[in-house]
Amino acid sequence: MSNLHVDKREMEINENLARFFFVLGDPTRLRILHELGEEEKNVSELSDRLGLTVSAISHQLKILRDKDLVRSRRDGKFIYYRMSDDHVRDIIRISRDHLCEDHSQEN
């Protein structure tokens, strides 16, 4: 495989990774993911828990769904959302752990 092909593939991966972290960079979406990390919820439940309109929650869920960070299932007239897999939960947990570490003793 040529270096040009590897470099192009690496650039594509980095661009996708940047878009992924851009989606995670929104506090509202992180709050939604935090709620969904506990258990699946429908839009009304998320709206009540987060104090946001159903429309605002739905908009953010669409973005999260488009990036495959959440999945949904229908139960009667309700659609329930959950994190798409443990990787999403792990990325958020590891990031929180990193931010909460005491770095004052370093250097």
Rank of each mutant, 00 (worst) to 15 (best):
89 R>W: 00
68 D>Y: 06
78 F>R: 09
107 N>A: 06
35 E>F: 00
84 S>R: 02
89 R>I: 03
23 V>M: 13
27 P>S: 09
49 R>T: 02
75 D>P: 00
58 S>K: 07
50 L>W: 03
20 F>Y: 15
95 S>V: 04
89 R>D: 08
67 K>D: 15
3 N>Q: 08
85 D>W: 01
90 D>N: 07
53 T>A: 12
52 L>E: 09
17 L>N: 06
40 E>M: 14
71 R>D: 08
86 D>Y: 01
99 L>E: 08
9 R>G: 02
34 H>A: 12
88 V>K: 00
46 L>D: 03
102 D>T: 06
63 I>N: 15
34 H>W: 12
61 L>Q: 12
14 N>W: 10
48 D>P: 01
94 I>H: 09
54 V>M: 10
107 N>P: 01
78 F>S: 11
70 V>M: 02
13 I>T: 05
80 Y>H: 07
91 I>Q: 00
75 D>Y: 01
38 E>I: 11
40 E>S: 14
83 M>T: 05
73 R>M: 12
42 N>M: 07
96 R>T: 10
77 K>G: 06
51 G>K: 07
11 M>P: 00
34 H>Y: 13
27 P>M: 09
28 T>I: 13
24 L>E: 05
71 R>G: 02
34 H>L: 10
41 K>I: 06
24 L>K: 04
93 R>D: 13
31 R>P: 01
22 F>N: 12
60 Q>F: 11
86 D>G: 08
2 S>I: 00
19 R>K: 14
9 R>I: 09
40 E>K: 13
49 R>M: 00
62 K>R: 15
10 E>G: 02
10 E>I: 14
59 H>F: 10
36 L>V: 03
81 Y>E: 04
36 L>R: 02
67 K>A: 15
27 P>R: 11
57 I>Q: 05
82 R>E: 10
51 G>C: 11
19 R>I: 05
48 D>Q: 09
18 A>P: 03
70 V>C: 04
31 R>Q: 13
9 R>F: 11
67 K>F: 15
6 V>I: 15
26 D>M: 05
10 E>Y: 11
77 K>D: 12
76 G>F: 07
86 D>W: 02
88 V>Y: 00
104 S>P: 03
47 S>N: 10
23 V>W: 14
41 K>Q: 15
38 E>Y: 13
65 R>T: 09
10 E>T: 13
48 D>T: 11
31 R>F: 08
16 N>M: 03
3 N>T: 04
94 I>N: 12
31 R>W: 11
90 D>R: 09
